[in-house]
Each structure stands twice: as structure tokens, then as C-alpha cells.
Design a protein around this nucleic acid. Structure first.
Lengths: 354, 354
DNA sequence: ATTTAGCACTCTCGAAAAGCGAGTGCTAGC
DNA sequence: GCTAGCACTCGCTTTTCGAGAGTGCTAAAT
């Protein structure tokens, strides 16, 4: 679907104006704000066409025009020129990402920064895909009788832990032995492969060893899975959503906040955008979740050592400054990737983020 | 300050009614709802007295009466009879506290339950007082060059971790040696004492050992302190606050949500109620934080093996069902204490919670 | 064929006005 | 000390009205 250049220009001007002011844009205003020397009447004719095509609509007979979701979509796809970030903001972001921190902390930082810099709600999905995360280190700590604390460190330096209750009492040296065996044997192997490998192994192994290894496999499995509820999503700056006037209606807002606590829908959405590389934008109902119906979500995947492991982004009103938000999300994803990657700094960042 | 019995009865009836309906209570309504056979006019006279004393007020000339903060205070202090919890709710709470879980998870559960059962916002403060928490186990994991992951387990089976960047490269065996030394020597000692002890020790020790121990002290110190921002407070069910009609004004609500993210004020408040044992109630401005001006906070401390370590509670409208909320907070605190205590089950719970 | 000027029309928003209902305070009588 | 009655006060809702903004249409101009 293509538009004549003048119509495009006007649509662009209208959307930018609407994003800036939040009020329906009338023909006179638009005539003045756009460079072309056209009378309001002409503009009205063009608007009429745009309305026909579904790009704009008017809230009521005598208000100006407002972009529809389709209009926004066309805008971000073909009209939008993203603004380079202010150097100050880039510096700010870069400084806050201290690669010396552990992943949890980095993701926390990321969500916080996304929120602060964009003035929207920042979200970071924590990776929890056992096929992509490699095992690094396992450690047992004896608690009371038959209760053992299993600590599992993954390649990304993330620490998972879980209390196991066993039916047999293990000695400290037994535990140490099991941990050692496990550590030397499985370092660097993906968690999923370990699970498979262990299943085989247990069939062959002697009874005694097998019992301890059974423990180890439980530790590995449960430490990762048990957490799935809880620490899998960072959300910061939820309160910023209260500034969205379209959500004046508290009911909607409440449902949105419930969604933050349930997390399920949000995780699905982020998971969807995991597959597609690069910045992805969901406008209003496009997300498919009607809690997000008046919101847009801008996401970007982030990676560890080149492998995509999670998604981050922001949630805000459909009427957001996409040209500003997109680079923020983009750069934050890169910075996080780079800080998480234990290897050398990602070269792509150095090249592109100025 | 004492009231004649009839006035007390009426005040009690008025507050209960107001808590139930949320609307100013007029003399006729009150006359009907209270058992006494009095005419509205008589009630009006009593109300006039109560208003004089500052227990009630009317929003405007011709509305019913509404309790003041002083009224609520008098109510909870001397008129309130707490309702025993419904057996179903007690069972529900008890079942959810699986002592097999780790502390983080238990606290998460606690905040979730507080919110669900009370229909208010649940908060749990995570203890982080280094003088009360004993050291249990330390472990180092080598990451890339000069980056070491320190994992510290405290007596309550809480796992803390931190990435240290060192200026010297340590071998795996050096690290193991340091951890071993530390573990055998300091098991059971409070974290604060370890810090002090180490300072002395480092002056005497040889250079080589001292360097490794320096690492250990950094690990111990930073692992605990580095977390102070982030995981120190669980808040669940914030969205329930949106149902408070007194906060219809979004501005106030927004400030409140900001307070949840800042956490500072909330932590102070919870810290204050740490000292006083038992359930503590802050009504409106009593908390001293004006974000909480239209809210009440009901808190109770919880303990590990008999020693108070943290506080939990709920935040809701001043107009909340105190008789119901108080036992919820009370029992949740006990159940959490009991689940956290690695020793035998706390006897006090068994006795009192029915 | 496109653009423009003019004009009648529609609709929202805010202020002002009116009516309703709930509840009070007061006074006089029981 | 309690109650009945009554005038009065407010807040809330609905209505009315006018102003303002912006549109669509038509007819003229380029």
C-alpha cells in the first residue's frame, strides 16, 4: 500500500504532532506546522483520504484526527527516522553497566535504566532455557539432617540454589565427592544435556554412586526449574504507566498491573520476540494480549557470547516517542549483551552505537 | 480518655459500618444498625460529643460521620475484637509454607499469601543485619581471568553471591585453600564479628595468606552488602491499592508506587516495627511518611530460631478490616518464623494459632 | 484538475443553574 | 434524658447554554 509523497508527509507530521501533544490534530494546525504552503481545506481533503485508508480517525465529528494502530504501524515501518541518542544518555547508559556485576544485578540495572531513560516501564526477561545455558559449578552445603543446600552456578555466572530434602543422610565427604565428580565431568555442558546424560549414567552406575548422583541430578534440575516462578522477569517503573492519560480509567490500569504480577502473558510476548533478531515493536492490539491494548511494547533480544538468550524492552502508551525509544532499547540490549559476555567486548557495539 | 459505654458502643458500630460500606454513616442508619433502641436524634447528640472528642468528623455539613485517625486508634486499641481466622484460611496458609523451600522463596510466598488472603498489599522485609546473621559456608568459583564468583551461604540457608574483580590471578587451589580455611574457622560466627576478626588477623598474617584472606573478607562483606539494593523487600499485590477509592486521585497512587520502588521509606518503617514485638499498627499519618497518609500498615516481626530478624505486614486503606487483617499478619509471621527455623518447629505456633 | 474560501453544521467542554436527597442542629415537648 | 419536628445546609446529579474548534460540502479561482 503506497501513498503519494504529500500524504505521507502529512501523515508523518500528524503523528509526530500527536505524539508530542497528545491531542487530536486539526487541519489548521497541521497546515501551519508542515512546511508545505497549503490551505486547511486542502489538508482536510488529504485527511479524508487517509481516514478512508484507515491510517487516521477522528474521535468525534468535530475534533482533529488521531492516528490509528495501522497508522502507527505504517509510521514506524516506513516514515520513522530514529533519532540518535543524546551523547549524554549514551554515556550514562554505558557507565552504569559495570561488567563486574553479576547477571542478576546487570538485568536489574538494565530494567531500571530502560525505565529511567525512556520514562516508560522497563522490562527484562531473564533467560531460563536449559538448552542454552551451560553448567559451570555445583556445590553442596549440608544444612540440618537430611536437608542439603545445592548451589549451582551456570556459565553466565548466575547462581541458582535450592534446598533438597533427602531420605538418606549424606556425609560431608560424600557430598564433596559427588560435587567434585560432577564438576570435573560436566563443566561447560548444557544443562539439558546433563539431564539426559545423567539418566543414562544412572542405569549403569553402582548403587552407591548412583544415589549420590541422583542427588546431583536433582540439584541440577530443581535448582533451575524451581526458580522459574519468581526471578524470571524484572519490571521497573511501573508507576510511569499511570501518566498515560488514555488509561485514565483505573480498571485498565489495574489489569495491567495484575499482568505484571502474573507475568505469564508478558513472558510469552517477550519469548515471541526472542526469535526475531533486532528491535521489534508491538503496537496496541498487535501484541495479542488485550491488557496491552492501549500500549505499545518495544523489545530487543540480548545475547551472551553471541547467542541470543533473552529479551528486554519497554512498555508505554501507543503514543510514545518511538524515534527516541527504539535506540534506547537497542543500545541497552547491546550493552547488556556486552556486559554479560565474559569474553572480549562485543565488537558490534563499538561500531554501531554512536 | 474514657467514654461512657453507650458512646463506645456507638463508635464501634459506626466504625464497623464505615469499614464495611466506605460511606459516611448517618444517625438514622446507625440507629437502625445498633441493637439499642434509640432515636436518630439521640444518636446525633452522642455523635456531637464524639466529634468534640475528635473521634469522628463529617466530611461536610450534611453527610454522616466518618472516623478520624484518632477514632481508628481508639478502636483498634480498646474496642476491637479480632476475628479468629476461618479454618480454611489457616489451612491454606499452613499448607503453602513448605519448610523445604529456601528463605527467598518462603518470603516470596509469605508476601504473596499476605496479599491474597487479606486482599491488600503484602510486604516482607528480608533481614540483612550482619550482626544477627551467622556465616555458614563460603565458596569461590573462578570465572574469567581475575574475576571470581564468591558464593556465601548464611546460617539461614540464604545464598548470597557477588563477582569480585581482583588485581592478582589466583589459582584454583589457592581459592580452595582460602575457602577451606575460612569455612572451618568461621562457621557459625556472625558476619559482623567475622569482619572485625578478619581485620585483626590480616595485620598478623603473612603476605601470601593475607592476600587470599583479603579476598575472603571482600567476598563476605560485598556479598552481603552489595545486595542491599534489590532483594531486600518483597512487595506483592500492589494493584490492590488501586481499589482504594480514597486514592481516586492518581497522583497519590503514583507516589505510593514510587515508594515501592524506592523502598527506602518502607524499609525504615518496617525497621522501626522490628524492635517492638507483636503486631503493630500504623494508622494514616502515624507512620510519619506522607505517602502513606491515607493508608494503614499492619506489621509483625518474624524470627529465626527465636531471634527476631525481619518484619512483614500489609498495606491497605485506613478503612481496612482490622479484625480480619491482624490475625492474618500475626499467623503469617509465625508460620514464616517456623518455616525459617531449621530447628524443631516453633512451639508457640502450635499453642496459639487456633 | 487541483486548490481555496466560505458557510452551515456537529460535537465537546466548561460554567452556571436547578432540583434532589441525605443528614444535621436546634427547639420544644414528653 | 430522650424524642419528634422542622428549617437549613451541602454535595451530587442533571440540565441548559454558549463558546470554540473543526469538519464536510459547495462553489469559485487558479
Amino acid at each position: 500500500m503506497s501513498l503519494n509523497p504529500r500524504a505521507e508527509l502529512l501523515l508523518k507530521a500528524l503523528i509526530e504532532r500527536y505524539i508530542a501533544d497528545g491531542e487530536p490534530v486539526g487541519s489548521r494546525t497541521l497546515a501551519r506546522s508542515v512546511g508545505l504552503d497549503l490551505s486547511p481545506a486542502t489538508i482536510r481533503n488529504v485527511m479524508s483520504d487517509l481516514e478512508e485508508l484507515g491510517f487516521v480517525e477522528s474521535p468525534h465529528t468535530s475534533a482533529g484526527r488521531v492516528p490509528t494502530e495501522l497508522g502507527y504501524r505504517f509510521f514506524v515501518d516506513t516514515l520513522l527516522k530514529v533519532q540518535p541518542l543524546a551523547p549524554g544518555e549514551v554515556r550514562r547508559l554505558r557507565e552504569e553497566f559495570d561488567p563486574g556485576h553479576d547477571p542478576q544485578q546487570l538485568m536489574h540495572t538494565a530494567s531500571q535504566l530502560l525505565s529511567e531513560v525512556s520514562h516508560l516501564t522497563g522490562i527484562v526477561m531473564v533467560p531460563r532455557r536449559d538448552d542454552q545455558i551451560a553448567f559451570r559449578h555445583l556445590d553442596f552445603v549440608r544444612l540440618a539432617d537430611k536437608r542439603i543446600l545445592a548451589i549451582l552456578v551456570t556459565q553466565d555466572a548466575q547462581v541458582h540454589n535450592r534446598i533438597l530434602t533427602t531420605d538418606h543422610e549424606y556425609s560431608a565427604s560424600e557430598l564433596e565427592q559427588a560435587a567434585n565428580y560432577f564438576n570435573t565431568r560436566y563443566a561447560g555442558v548444557s544443562v539439558r544435556d546433563i539431564k539426559r546424560g545423567l539418566l543414562n549414567e544412572m542405569k549403569q552406575a553402582s548403587d552407591d554412586l548412583s544415589r549420590i548422583m541422583q542427588l546431583a541430578i536433582r540439584a541440577a534440575g530443581e535448582a533451575l526449574e524451581g526458580e522459574s516462578e519468581g526471578d524470571d522477569l524484572f519490571v521497573r517503573g511501573e508507576e510511569k504507566l499511570m501518566d498515560i492519560p488514555d488509561l485514565g480509567d483505573i480498571k485498565k490500569l489495574r489489569r495491567l498491573f495484575e499482568a505484571f504480577n502474573t507475568k505469564r502473558d508478558l513472558l510469552h510476548l517477550l519469548d515471541r520476540s526472542l526469535r526475531a533478531g533486532g528491535v521489534k515493536i508491538f503496537i496496541g492490539a498487535e501484541s495479542g494480549y488485550d491488557v496491552l491494548s492501549d500500549c505499545s511494547v518495544v523489545t530487543a533480544p540480548y545475547s551472551i557470547d553471541g547467542q541470543i538468550v533473552g529479551t528486554l524492552g519497554v512498555i508505554g502508551p501507543t503514543r510514545m516517542a518511538y524515534d527516541h525509544v527504539i535506540p534506547i532499547v537497542d543500545i541497552t540490549a547491546r550493552l547488556l549483551s556486552s556486559a554479560l559476555s565474559v569474553g572480549e567486548r562485543s565488537a558490534s557495539l563499538e561500531k554501531e552505537d554512536q
